[in-house]
Design a protein around this nucleic acid. Sequence first.
DNA 1: TACGATCCTATAACAGTGTTATAAGAACGA
DNA 2: TCGTTCTTATAACACTGTTATAGGATCGTA
Lengths: 225, 225
Amino acid sequence: MTSLDDKADTSAANRRDAQRAALLDAASEMLMRGGPDAISLRKLAARVGTSTMSVYTAFGGKEGLIAALFEEAFDRLADAEMAVARPAEPLLWLAELGRAYRRFAIENPSYYALMISVTMPVVETLRHDQPADNETPARHIPSHPSFQILIDAIEACIAEGSFPSGIDALVIADALWATTHGHCSLELAGFYASAETAEARFASASTAILKGFLTSKGLEKLRSL
Amino acid sequence: MTSLDDKADTSAANRRDAQRAALLDAASEMLMRGGPDAISLRKLAARVGTSTMSVYTAFGGKEGLIAALFEEAFDRLADAEMAVARPAEPLLWLAELGRAYRRFAIENPSYYALMISVTMPVVETLRHDQPADNETPARHIPSHPSFQILIDAIEACIAEGSFPSGIDALVIADALWATTHGHCSLELAGFYASAETAEARFASASTAILKGFLTSKGLEKLRSL
DNA sequence: TACGATCCTATAACAGTGTTATAAGAACGA
DNA sequence: TCGTTCTTATAACACTGTTATAGGATCGTA
């Protein structure tokens, strides 16, 4: 995994990147194993075969390391979302995206907990624009592919007539996200008695929040699926 | 605050309870100030004027202390829910409960973060029944007043005909909770640009998830409000 | 009231943690 | 090849939660 003594290009920049990747690999493994608190800089450095200082030069400290994992989590989610086959019906696409989101959350609980953690010090991580002076620091998720694909699906539904034509896709996206995330958060917290009821509740909530925005034409289309 | 040298009943049991309460008070203040990580047993003990050992005798350790705060958080939420005046229209009651929930989450962000934290080791805290052997450990929130009042409101809506008569109130309750909690979680995480858009999104999502379950009669009633 | 058992607590030590100063070393450009 | 710059290993600092221990206060009972 960390074979640094290759005869390949062993420039300093490459070795830095390799060690950075090795640190991230080991950190995400420790994250998946025992949650964010299980990431100890000493154990992490020992596993990679270096000292704790490399974490500071590569990431600026533990916060930076977690921030990097944060970005990786969103990238993984985006991969999971983009991996779903796009059906002909936009409403089906939307439903598939929701299921993929839940699947990701359940299969990567530590990463998901990281993404939604309030104490995340990476507010500016996902921003690609300059924040205004008097602006409340927001995370600007909309610029990320994992969110953009959701908006694409919603706009396809609007174009199809399943959602009202004048509506802002962001409003629907935020509502769908709130419901989906809320369910996953509760499920991961152990609030549901079994995985079966959790899945049933997810289906109920998903179709309900969807129906709340559908036009009569969209409702008909939903019934016919 | 911690006047232990009263001439009142100074039995050992009373002093124990008083110190327990003082510890909880100080801990919740530290919690509100800087989040769960800001609770240091040494600083906590110093503030109350005792040593760290009392935390172990009173709560069994830091986990027990956090668990006690966890229970207090749910009690506070229940108080906030029960404080809303019950309107004549059950649908309005439901809406008010949702707003009270969000208000609680925003005004007590640390407590709320505590309640929904995945790493909470207090799974059995809120249970009042014996878990079966092969049962997945669930939190059994439904037995708590803060959840029961939601179910009461939903059943009132069912009785009124706004929700389908055959439906399980728990299904609607879980869906409403998922949406409400999901929005609050995202809002506290800083995903919304401003408090205004956050409030607007909350209103949109709340009415949407509601409409998803309403009967045609309920939809009419909602329009007339 | 006096005694003995029980509980509680203050102190100190243990094993961790993230962070930082320092000094030695490696890699780089000139 | 020299000198600068960057990186790292070591050790120390200031913390954390937890625990063993010894002393003291409290309580039920004679």
